[in-house]
Design a protein around this nucleic acid. Sequence first.
DNA 1: AGCGAGTTTATGTATAGACATATCGCCCGT
DNA 2: ACGGGCGATATGTCTATACATAAACTCGCT
Lengths: 245, 245
Amino acid sequence: MSLAETSTKPGAGTLYKTIRQDIERRILTGEWPPGHRIPFEHEIMEHYGCSRMTVNKALSELAQADLIERRRRAGTFVRRPQFLSAVLKIPDIRAEIGALGRAYGYELISSARRTANSADRERLGVKTPCKVIAIRCRHSADGLPFAIEDRLIDLDAVPDAAKANFKIDPPGSWLLHHVPWTEAEHAISAIIADDAIAAGLDIAVGAPCLVIERHTWRQGQPLTAVRLVYPGEQHRLVARFRGSE
Amino acid sequence: MSLAETSTKPGAGTLYKTIRQDIERRILTGEWPPGHRIPFEHEIMEHYGCSRMTVNKALSELAQADLIERRRRAGTFVRRPQFLSAVLKIPDIRAEIGALGRAYGYELISSARRTANSADRERLGVKTPCKVIAIRCRHSADGLPFAIEDRLIDLDAVPDAAKANFKIDPPGSWLLHHVPWTEAEHAISAIIADDAIAAGLDIAVGAPCLVIERHTWRQGQPLTAVRLVYPGEQHRLVARFRGSE
DNA sequence: AGCGAGTTTATGTATAGACATATCGCCCGT
DNA sequence: ACGGGCGATATGTCTATACATAAACTCGCT
């Protein structure tokens, strides 16, 4: 029990993957519950009889996958699992539609620049007064409505947005290419189309819609808040992924 | 232009992060489109004047994040972005409800073991005849309906499932703890509650529902297919994440 | 031309050692 | 008791080197 388990099935052939999978297994089965401090690199390295870099590589990958949290001097801890957390990787609708091989269409419905009212401030999560741009637009694929977008941009945080031409560029694409972000949050829910949504998406009132709300920050400062409404029966969010081999 | 840009803002203080972000930026802005071969480790290492291990660390992280694909002898290539791919990280409803601090309830509605009919086979994606378990159950939080689950398990791929007691253990939890998987696929969509769903979730017919369909494989072999229906106005899939600092 | 064996090359893994950096805790002085 | 400073310690980064491995390429044989 004390030495490296070269006798057990090697798992994946390489040492660091074996280490990573051993730890991953213990976390997923609950043997090491959230908050548990996993052995120091020093100890793991002795257990497997390898160098610290090898252990470090295994732990770094687990940290990148958010399974563990590493704190200097304190050690490495099992993270609370992110239940049903949904990560939408690339948020650019224009590119998405292009990748589907369909013709992208964009239409600016309304655009207003104003001092943020209390609803705007709450939605963005800012406390101090600021200027915002409020945009409503529609994306379409092959001429058919694809999504309705409702967006608020904090002009103080993104002053360049005042110079962008949102009659031509979709705000999502423009922001993705011009503004770096550090944190984001998504929420996905389902709603029933009301009159405005039904008209905008060319579907029946009462039809199901998928709603994605996204907030984006840079170093804790709110940049933009957006709400995208998709026809729910036509649109599916699909993801395929691997379980770290 | 030829040497390391120590004059530009360091980005993140450490070299490998600078390298990773430089490359990430070029990919996200489209400067290096999908399929583009990015410079060899050898070249990057000379460009930044560092060792290959440092470059390798940066590229490994980008590969883990699925931004690039690495092929021996051929080089490293920008991957086709996974548009709007949604990754639901932990699929265990029992743990999810527990984490919300609410009391978990589980009720098996029906369970049947049978030889897969053609609909079962299509849903699972198997071609040859096999045995399956079909389960319908309900999850609740604090006594209120939380989700309806409809699941198919391939008994040939997961023979142990015949011994599990799904009257007590939710099939999702049981599978998570007993069956390793290597690939999974999610699809999220929105539907309108029909009679059966409305009754099961205690909501009105015509109310919006969020649907998650998940398929799970091990080494390409289908293990299980599940469809989860949530009340759409009460339930939101939320995720917060960082943009690789 | 077709095919198989050998070569080249870029990535993959692993090592030992070095120094940096964030903190946890302890000790000491007020 | 309280707080500031400092040392111990675990992780973070980086290097130079070595060998393994897979795949693309070359070349020569039939």
